[in-house]
């Protein structure tokens, strides 16, 4: 068991290293850079030629453009290992600080949405698989197909237009109002929930659909298992068969996906958070990519990668806890 843990940790470490290196070089290969954008801006506002504007911008940010890429790479690796993610070019504050501010919002919205989606979706999926001939099946399947196929930012936009712009039931942007004090107090929590409602819905509406489909497929295959018909023949109560024979076995497969979804949540949903201008990880991701803010971009990438890897590791261990067959051997 010890060796298998060490092995997994080692593999995770190598994966993080590789992913870091790839993102470093890929981001540098993206066309355009932040100075280019800023120089264009300066050129227009000050009416000077582009070359001059570009040089001025570089001078302002103290960027030695001649630094070779491999030197930048090693400097970056060294800093990352020491936990320093660099300074955002656009925001002029450390990436660590930006992430520390953004993470709670993303975790707040995403964990609520994922739990809601998973619980409602898998419960519905099991019920549909269990009672094959109800009206619920075609209804839920149609719902799942439509919401699963619709891009989430379109759902987000629709929600925004209907409930925030037209009906004015919910705020258009932000995570909380200026008139509440952030902290552990009831008005603030209520306010944060109020602001988070639409983003949560934008996540959960398609989420439920996806989990319905996954869980239904899984439950139907479990229903064909001999131990389910044997449980019926033993005259066990229907409730017990549905929950502890079908449900518990059917949830094993979707459970792994749940862990991975949780991991990738740290990256935030760029498009959803951008639509609601919700200051989570995804929002800054969108900004960083748009502005070619390398340090911020890499910091966010690192966190997403770390999140997924951590979640996969966690999924392995949790899986062993819910499936006794995995517990031994490893």
């Amino acid at each position: 068991m010890m060796t298998s843990i060490t092995k997994r940790l080692l593999v995770s470490f190598v994966t993080i290293f590789l992913a870091l290196s790839i993102t470093f070089f890929l981001t540098r290969k993206m066309p355009g850079d932040i100075f280019y954008t800023m120089a264009l801006d300066k050129m227009r506002t000050e009416g000077i030629p582009f070359d001059v504007a570009y040089e001025r911008v570089m001078a302002i940010y103290g960027m030695a453009s001649g630094e070779p890429l491999y030197k930048q790479y090693f400097a970056y690796l060294g800093n990352t290992i020491r936990g320093r993610l660099g300074t955002s070019i656009y925001y002029h504050i450390s990436v660590n600080k930006i992430i520390a501010k953004a993470i709670p919002w993303t975790v707040f919205v995403c964990s609520i949405s994922i739990f809601l989606g998973f619980i409602i979706g898998s419960a519905l999926g099991t019920v549909i698989a269990w009672k094959r001939k109800t009206i619920l099946d075609p209804l839920a399947s149609a719902y799942a197909s439509i919401t699963d196929a619709t891009p989430s930012y379109i759902i987000a936009t629709i929600l925004l237009v209907i409930f925030a712009v037209n009906l004015k039931w919910f705020p258009i942007k932000g995570a909380y109002s200026v008139d509440v004090t952030p902290g552990f107090n009831l008005p603030f929590i209520w306010n944060a929930l109020y602001h988070a409602t639409l983003p949560i819905l934008a996540y959960t509406i398609p989420g439920i659909g996806g989990w319905i489909l996954t869980m239904k497929a899984s439950a139907i295959s479990v229903l064909g298992e001999d131990y389910v018909s044997a449980a019926k023949a033993r005259g066990l109560k229907e409730r017990r068969i549905a929950i502890s024979y079908v449900g518990r076995n059917a949830i094993l497969a979707p459970f792994t996906s749940l862990a991975i979804v949780f991991g990738s949540m740290l990256g935030g949903a760029t498009l959803i958070e951008s639509v609601f201008a919700y200051p989570g990880m995804g929002f800054f991701f969108g900004k960083a990519i748009g502005l070619r803010d390398y340090p911020l971009m890499q910091g966010l990438f690192l966190l997403t990668i770390g999140g997924v890897i951590l979640a996969t590791l966690l999924a392995d261990f949790l899986y062993a806890a819910i499936d006794p067959r995995v517990r031994k051997g490893g």
Partner: peptide, 24 residues
């Protein structure tokens, strides 16, 4: 029928190997 099953007639199935719940 549920009450009747197992109480009056019990069965040992074909492929009984798989008739136990693997996670209990």
């Amino acid at each position: 029928q549920r009450r009747f099953r197992w109480k009056k007639i019990a069965t040992v199935f074909q492929a009984a190997q798989n008739s136990l719940n693997p996670i209990k």
